[in-house]
């Protein structure tokens, strides 16, 4: 009997200890949640294999799954850019191309006819790691701009490896300068720094581009070089209507039936008869 009671006391002490540990853990979890940093890419690095960061994002946020994010790929004016469709690169387009890319997938593009380096080609990759939330109907008017500048292309042709993280700027920490949509503002980081972490500290990373000087030796059966050719959405240029204009009739905006209702005063020197109040004010 005494042995049984001793076992019971031992079990009770164990349960008490577990409960206290659970309570302490819950309280510490609350503190950790209050102190959790806003960044979400602390466990990622930009030099991870292509696709790792995007897949990790999908594991965190399932709303990113199967979402086509509109992007606009910009290359120098005379260069060509082509997307991979059906195991091959389609007909190149000059300047820029718009497409909808799946978040978490990796896409290989071909850039050719590079100014001053005609005859040479580079094959960068684009990995989408996040998405935008534009108003309905405006998805393709606000793509994520991805720029491959002449300098980037020349560095890649010079056997350098260029990693570029495109991020969404926090408007409350935005620099009070005007940006040129044709020339994306960028920051250079040292080789020992992580551009994904730097971009995460200044905004929200949206895409990662990697570009070297490898010449493709891709197999159309395995499609390893094309990362399995994930699906994409193509947009016909000018297929979407222009930006929606307000449909309200300007004449109807002025309530001419009750001109005596407005509460604007009479007789002010700079008042130019916007509305003529003639009746009693309410």
């Amino acid at each position: 009997m005494s042995r049984i009671s001793a076992i019971n006391r031992c079990g009770q002490r164990t349960i008490c200890g577990l409960l206290i540990v659970c309570l302490a853990g819950t309280l510490s979890l609350q503190n950790l949640q209050a102190q959790a940093p806003a960044t979400i890419h602390n466990f990622h690095r930009a030099n991870l294999p292509p696709g790792t960061v995007g897949q990790g994002q999908i594991l965190r946020d399932r709303s990113l799954l199967n979402h086509f994010q509109a992007v606009e790929i910009n290359v120098p004016a005379k260069a060509f850019v082509a997307l991979a469709v059906d195991g091959r690169f389609e007909r190149p387009q000059r300047g820029s191309v718009k497409a909808g890319l799946l978040v978490g997938q990796v896409y290989r593009v071909q850039i050719s006819n590079i100014p001053f380096y005609e005859g040479l080609e580079v094959y960068p990759t684009i990995e989408m790691v996040n998405r935008l939330h534009p108003p309905a109907g405006q998805e393709f008017h606000f793509p994520v701009p991805i720029h491959f500048t002449q300098e980037d292309l020349e560095l890649a042709l010079d056997n350098q490896f260029v990693t570029r993280v495109v991020a969404l700027e926090n408007p409350r920490e935005a620099a009070p300068i005007a940006d040129d949509p044709k020339d994306q503002r960028y920051f250079d980081v040292a080789p020992h720094e992580d551009p994904l972490l730097v971009a995460d500290q200044r905004g929200k990373p949206m895409a990662i581009t990697r570009m070297g000087s490898r010449i493709p030796d891709y197999d159309t059966v395995s499609n390893i070089f094309l990362f399995g050719m994930p699906p994409l959405l193509k947009f016909v240029p000018d297929a979407n209507p222009a930006k929606s204009k307000p449909t309200v009739n300007p004449e109807a905006a002025i309530d001419r039936q009750q001109r005596n209702v407005p509460r604007l005063p009479i007789g002010q020197p700079n008042f130019h008869n916007v509305l003529i109040p003639s009746g009693p004010r309410r």
Binding site: Q138, P145, V162, E169, Q184, V189, P191, P195
Partner: peptide
């Protein structure tokens, strides 16, 4: 107003 603005962070690695 919906008006996102982007920037880029670049790193160049040598051989």
């Amino acid at each position: 107003l919906y008006s996102p603005r982007f920037f880029a962070v670049r790193r160049v690695d040598g051989l």
